[in-house]
């Protein structure tokens, strides 16, 4: 991996992020009507305060946010703000800043979603590989196949099913939220257990719902890899079947999957909006959902920026570490 390659990738990353950020600038401005006015109207509708002159307040806001300036100036201000991680304030929950909202939601999403995505990846890959490994018992195929089919169901729908079975009918798990409302949070066993208890259903719906896709990808790669001569040669060396499976089969078959994993992790923040919304989980997804519902544009813009950074970052990181995983990759162009 040459320095040129790294520089080139960085340049590309900057370009992509730049374009994406620009799209993010243009988007809200393409929405018909005035976002501030409509947000204020929403806010007023919620609070029931009718005596405010919407026009006037909106004017004040616009001045405050520089929305009365020419477009290019707004764009420069926007870029400047982005550089300083300054995403403005929530229109609906004024004066809370967007950054503080995101900051309080992020840990929830990151822990729940990362953990379940990685679990789904590992479990799915192993199952997929076992599917084509010749000495896997037949029983395995019989037992695991139904789970694979289950995985084709979109995971937020799976969430609804799980919710109705385990929360509504059986009442084993809470119907939503990230923790019990009565809980006094602290760093103790009770808190941890409570949070875990709340996270099991959403986690399960992600794991069950996405495991199959990983298994499928792994299965296809594993078929190709098992046909390779180096697997035969490994067997001819008299290696333990377990070693052949893990180090000559899975390890090689997993390489193309790693890119997908990085994309999935980068997309974790945004891709699970629906699951979070269904479980009213206090993460980024629910925040975004609420912001969309109340047209809280600055919050939307802020979250989208975070998502752009996450995804572009994930793509970049995978490009950087892939050559370490697969020494064959030569970067020349």
């Amino acid at each position: 991996m040459s320095i040129t390659y790294v520089l080139q990738r960085i340049a590309q990353l900057i370009l992509i992020v730049f374009i994406a950020i620009t799209i993010n600038f243009i988007l809200p401005r393409m929405i018909p009507g005035d976002p501030i006015e409509s947000a204020l109207t929403t806010k007023i509708a919620i609070s029931g305060n009718v005596s405010v002159d919407v026009q006037k307040v909106a004017e004040a806001y616009r001045q405050k946010f520089g929305l009365d300036k020419p477009l290019w100036q707004q764009y420069l201000n926007y870029l400047n703000d982005v550089l300083h991680f300054e995403f403005g304030v929530s229109l609906v929950k004024f004066p809370e800043t967007v950054v503080s909202q995101i900051r309080s939601a992020l840990p929830w999403t990151i822990t729940l979603m990362m953990v379940s995505t990685i679990t789904a990846f590992l479990v799915g890959s192993i199952l997929g590989a076992l599917f084509v490994w010749p000495s896997t018992p037949r029983l395995f195929h019989v037992l695991v196949s139904p789970f694979m089919l289950l995985s084709t169901i979109p995971f937020f729908l799976l969430g609804i099913i799980l919710l109705s079975i385990f929360a509504t009918e059986l009442r084993i798990f809470p119907p939503g939220g990230g923790f019990s409302p009565t809980l006094i949070r602290g760093f103790n066993m009770e808190t941890i257990l409570d949070i875990l208890h709340h996270s099991i259903l959403p986690a399960l719906s992600i794991i069950l719902g996405s495991m199959g896709a990983w298994a499928l990808g792994m299965r296809a790669m594993m078929i190709t890899v098992l046909g390779e001569d180096y697997v035969t040669f490994a067997e001819a060396k008299g290696l333990h079947p377990r070693r052949v499976f893990l180090w000559y089969g899975m390890r090689n078959a997993m390489l193309p999957q790693v890119t997908q994993l990085a994309l999935a992790l980068g997309g974790v923040l945004g891709g699970t909006v629906l699951v979070e919304a269904i479980f009213s989980y206090p993460g980024i997804g629910t925040l975004l959902f609420a912001a969309i519902a109340t047209k809280d544009y600055f919050v939307i813009q802020g979250i989208v920026l975070i998502l752009i950074f996450a995804l572009a970052g994930a793509l970049f990181i995978i490009d950087m570490i892939y050559p370490l995983l697969d020494p064959r990759i030569r970067y020349t162009d």
Binding site: I16, A20, I23, V273, V304, L307, L311, A312, L315
Partner: peptide
């Protein structure tokens, strides 16, 4: 690639 990084939901 740029479009892929912008979450579809926003668009």
């Amino acid at each position: 690639d740029s479009l892929m990084t912008v979450p579809g939901i926003a668009i």
